[in-house]
Design a protein around this nucleic acid. Structure first.
Lengths: 282, 282
DNA sequence: TTGCTCCTCACGTCACGTGAGGTGGC
DNA sequence: TTGCTCCTCACGTCACGTGAGGTGGC
């Protein structure tokens, strides 16, 4: 009797020994046993101890290879009982498609982080009170569909909110910084809280903020609030014998994502300028 | 009294309205309220109804942008109360590092799937009973440290098992298909279950299975079982006036990952051959 | 008696989704 | 009365990790 037990368990391993050899935690082995995915070859009737055999590392490897590929245990269990080369290849195809989606999601996140970091960093270098002429490289943005304002005067936020449920249709992602677009400086001056379009700083954007010389100004405030910046910009233009030579872009360098107080957003307003021509003044 | 309630809630949105505008599920809004991450501006004392204001889409956007970046709600809540540009940039740096690790893990999985698919596909084309001479392209594998066999004759699995706890030290990953390496055909013939080294079919491997002409044979069995394949290969060599011109590689084209019966693994054995030279025979 | 291994619950994790059962206003 | 919206539990998800409390053999 004693001998029989010995010969039975002599070559077998306790859960701890098996765990050390395979690198799979005892808690994991117990869980896989519990759900019927992978069980020890033997249980002691009295003590309920689990005993594994060395060849079980092969059966275990089937499980660990698939779980390392991030395949759910349920799928592993299904495949275990009917695996063949074709079914395995099918599973790999499906898994690769999932992974493709994960990769795309990750790239998307990198892109958002990059876009936001660029704006935040340029915001950190800013001298807020000053207006200046700067040469800017071209920069892609997404130009949203034109805004339509009702007579009772929708706010910036109301107009923006109306878009949110439709972002999917227009390939707009609100994780990128949002801004405003005014075709003419005049419309910016008259209604700085009513951009002709919203924009988002998304590298896949088809609209290009063109390379060139820009008058650049800053202010702080909530979305749509520009303070006296439009007037200051116009004054600057007159005093420096320049003219506006393109649309006005409003970029929120520091928005609610990195600031607690939404009334102190760091706003950058840029508009292309040229030397005043003597042919026409507009 | 009636009027007061009206003016209070007039501009406010029910949870369903707010959900539709923002695209955030009502269950999510309730959960974020419950954990104190993002709460409605108002609760009705009697009905406990939640009421949101439109400007809250800004505060909500802070949450959704960060959760879309896969940042845990706990971290979002911490940043919410003390966010500034520097802290946000720090978080982005940390998040990018996490994402870098995820990307590496994904690439690793792609690599495993690729390696396994290659072996399985070539296994599907095989004529198992036949020996043939084939030209093979070079192929990288990882050569494990040499095996040491005790006198009482460890099995293939025992020897393999001894390595598993040390795989980390040798940069070996068991998710890649495992095989065997014999420096000489003689040692393969004498102890086909006792390879000089194990190998794994890992594309980062420094050991190259060289391009060239190989005698290729197949058998089925458990790890280390070769049946009469060594003898058949030697007979073939003699009959075709060839000689062995390199080490023997044992590759498990279909292993336990894609087969239920581990005694029917599809084994490919390859060894470089050359025409028998007349200078020296050995 | 002490120390060690093993056991079985039970609970926590993370961010919700999904009912169940009930209320309030048109 | 019916239909709609909202509410609060409570439970399920996924793959374990972590005790708590207890056992058995040296």
């Amino acid at each position: 009797m004693r001998l029989e037990i010995e010969t039975d368990t002599d070559d077998l391993l306790s859960i701890k020994e098996f765990s050390k050899i395979t690198g799979v935690e005892t808690s994991t082995l117990r869980y896989w046993d519990e759900i019927g995915l992978f069980s020890p070859v033997k249980r002691n009737r009295e003590t309920n101890y689990r005993y594994y055999s060395l060849v079980q590392i092969i059966a275990l490897n089937f499980v660990t290879v698939l779980t390392d590929l991030d395949i759910p245990l349920k799928t592993v269990a299904e495949l275990r009982d009917e695996r063949d080369p074709e079914k395995f290849l099918d599973l790999m195809d499906r898994q690769e498609k999932k992974m493709d989606m994960e990769i795309r999601a990750l790239r998307h996140r990198y892109s958002i982080i990059h876009a936001r970091r660029e704006l935040i960093n340029s915001g950190l270098k800013v001298q807020e009170g000053q207006l200046s002429i700067e040469h800017r490289e071209s920069m892609p943005v997404i130009l949203w569909p034109p805004n339509v304002y009702s007579e009772d005067g929708d706010t910036f936020i109301e107009t923006l909110a109306a878009f949110i449920p439709k972002t999917g249709q227009h390939n707009i992602n609100l994780s990128y910084p949002v801004g405003g677009y005014f075709e003419k400086f005049d419309s910016f001056k008259k209604g700085p809280d009513k951009p002709d379009n919203f924009i988002s700083v998304d590298p896949v954007g088809a609209h290009m903020i063109k390379e060139g010389d820009y008058l650049v100004g800053y202010t702080r405030g909530f979305y749509g609030e520009m303070g006296d910046l439009p007037i200051r910009m116009q004054t600057y233009i007159k005093e420096h014998d320049l003219r506006f030579a393109g649309p006005v872009y409003v970029l929120y360098l520091h928005d609610e994502i990195c600031l607690i107080d939404p009334n102190q957003l760091l706003v950058q307003v840029i508009v292309a300028v040229a030397k005043k021509s003597h042919r026409k003044q507009d």
